[in-house]
Nucleic acid binder design. Structure first.
Lengths: 139, 139
DNA sequence: GCTTGACCTTGACATCATGGGAAGGTGCAC
DNA sequence: GTGCACCTTCCCATGATGTCAAGGTCAAGC
């Protein structure tokens, strides 16, 4: 199986497969006589694993650990769960940050007339940091 | 005012101030005879503006537009509001993605015993993509 | 055999915002 | 006149991915 086929079968681009190989996330692929990389079912499974993990937002470092656990028959599921828990925590923290930004922006935006006049609470807030701070006020 | 003072007063690192200058986000700072950058109150205000905008998650490109509007006395608040609305949309989309990841992970995690045994629905899901898909099942 | 087109190879560079560090010049206080 | 904190420029790194370029390979058709 060529890298192109492995890419479309796993959903990981050929570029990224080479990249993952270069950083040691996956083992070096076998080669044909002319230098083409070859992939078997096992490699495909690994690539698909990586892709699903990326889809869940795991970092390469985390995936490295997950792969090691996956390939360790004597793993403890607690180790996997711990990685997942840490990741959930990170994601939740990011979400909360975004949430705060959105709330502030929505609040400012709701007080911006959005017309031809120049006065705008959004700019005022960016300019001075004072003024409306997003707290409850009128709803 | 030196770059260091401007940095601590505005909350933008000296490193980033130089960077913003190099990419043309801010005007070139004045210089002393020996080449040190100097900053006045106006520059400080701009830097603080940038920092607050970054805190709200605006990209450099968006900040470039916001700065232009801020410095345009004939601006229409509608233009500002449009930028903010676009940004809110982006942030909301990201939040939703994270939300989905978190929900999937929490679901998988809740079914992982987290003990010394190797069986783990998280790894199974990453390995096969099949099995528990996060749908309602027991609660 | 030869051409064509799709695929592969490596390598370099871009993104986005930021941090780190090296090597050398400047300012000020003791 | 020395020491230290600060400044300067320049280069490299992050993380995950994309793009592009120059060249090699394979298989099919003529």
């Amino acid at each position: 199986m060529n890298i192109g086929e492995a890419a479309s079968a796993s959903g990981v681009t050929a570029k990224m497969i080479r990249h993952y190989e270069s950083i040691g996330l996956i083992a070096e692929a076998g080669r044909t006589g002319s230098g083409y990389r070859t992939y078997g079912p096992k490699d495909l499974a690994t690539l698909s694993f990586i892709r699903r993990a990326r889809d869940l937002g795991f970092s390469i470092a985390q995936i490295r650990d997950l792969l090691a656990l996956w390939q360790d028959r004597d793993r403890a599921s607690a180790d996997v769960k711990r990685i997942a828990a840490g990741h959930i925590k990170e994601l939740t923290a990011k979400m909360r940050q975004l949430q705060e930004m959105v709330m502030t922006l929505q609040h400012l935006s709701s007080h911006c007339q959005g017309n031809d006049r120049p006065d705008c609470p959004i700019l005022e807030r960016l300019a001075s940091g004072t003024g409306d701070d997003g707290g409850a006020c009128c709803e």
